[in-house]
């Protein structure tokens, strides 16, 4: 197993500009603290992997980055998240607008069940008021579907129900749907965990291209996946009270070859829990 990991990508993009910055982010479910005091910078046009054992708060942290965490019952957040320098938690920043700039792909594919493939992709542009112009929508849809590496598979059945697609295709459809609103940042929560290896491979391949235009944050359980696709890796761990925080953050090549923290090393060498 290990040699594959060592072959990790260690090319860091030349242009270093911080697209998204989490500063002292904590989050609660009711009275239970789930993540504590997380500080992380996400470099523009890079892919950052969030890794860690189950329940350490990866999903929770990701959901704080586009203010979707607060839509859950009794959920609460503290700290700052700077998007191009503006704190998205400022009182006068509308969460809806923020979410347009920070797209999200979920662990399980969630296409809108009553819509066709095309309608799914264009739902963002249409209902967020970007455009209603049919030509423009068609262009946006094609572009998004191509970027999600789905266009060739569905171009002849764009009007079919989205649910008629396979699971892997549905997930790429959800990626296309997120891309169609042209976000600056793309958050992906274990986007391949419900998929077969072939679909996983397809999505990993398209991620490389995504980094050219987006800043990507991906949660993954899979060490090889983190090594293959990401430029940076943050390793998260829950403490005794199951409160998650970041243990180590470094370029992916470094974290897989010379982890500084012994807990990180335990995890990537499989000695953990």
């Amino acid at each position: 197993m290990q040699p594959a990991v060592v072959a990790a990508k260690d090319t860091v993009p030349d242009l270093v500009e911080i697209a998204l910055s989490a500063q002292a982010v904590s989050a609660w479910y009711g009275s239970k603290l789930a993540i504590r005091d997380i500080n992380l910078d996400f470099i523009r046009n890079s892919i950052t992997a969030l890794m860690g054992p189950s329940g350490c708060g990866k999903t929770t942290f990701l959901r704080c980055l586009n203010r979707i965490h607060e839509s859950a019952l009794d959920a609460r957040t503290a700290g700052k998240v700077l998007l191009a320098g503006t704190n998205i938690y400022d009182a006068d920043v509308n969460p809806v607008v923020t979410r347009r700039r920070i797209g999200m792909v979920f662990q399980r594919p969630n296409p809108f069940p009553t819509m066709s493939i095309l309608e799914n992709v264009t739902s963002g542009p249409r209902y967020t008021g970007m455009t209603n112009e049919p030509r423009e929508l068609a262009d946006l849809a094609e572009e998004a579907l191509r970027r999600a590496a789905l266009f060739d598979e569905v171009k002849d059945k764009l009007r079919d129900p989205a649910l008629s697609l396979s699971g892997g295709q549905q997930q790429r459809l959800c990626i296309a749907r997120a891309l169609a609103v042209k976000p600056e940042v793309l958050l992906m929560d274990e986007p391949t965990s419900a998929l077969d290896p072939l679909s996983t491979l397809k999505i990993e391949e398209l991620m490389e291209h995504l980094a050219a235009d987006f800043t990507v944050v991906i949660v993954t359980h899979n060490l090889q996946q983190a090594a293959r696709v990401s430029h940076f890796t943050a390793f998260m761990l829950g403490d005794a009270d199951r409160v998650g925080s970041v243990v180590e953050f470094a370029p992916t090549g470094e974290i897989f070859t010379h982890p500084k923290d012994s807990r990180t090393e335990d995890y990537i060498t499989g000695r953990f829990g």
């Binding site: 809806v96 979410r99 979920f106 963002g124």
Partner: peptide, 23 residues
């Protein structure tokens, strides 16, 4: 998950309800 899909796209409350949840 369907509701959150609409939220994550940046649909306002009424947009998500009218275009996604109610259908």
């Amino acid at each position: 998950s369907i509701r959150e899909g609409a939220l994550a796209l940046g649909l306002p409350d009424y947009g998500g309800v009218v275009h996604v949840v109610l259908p």
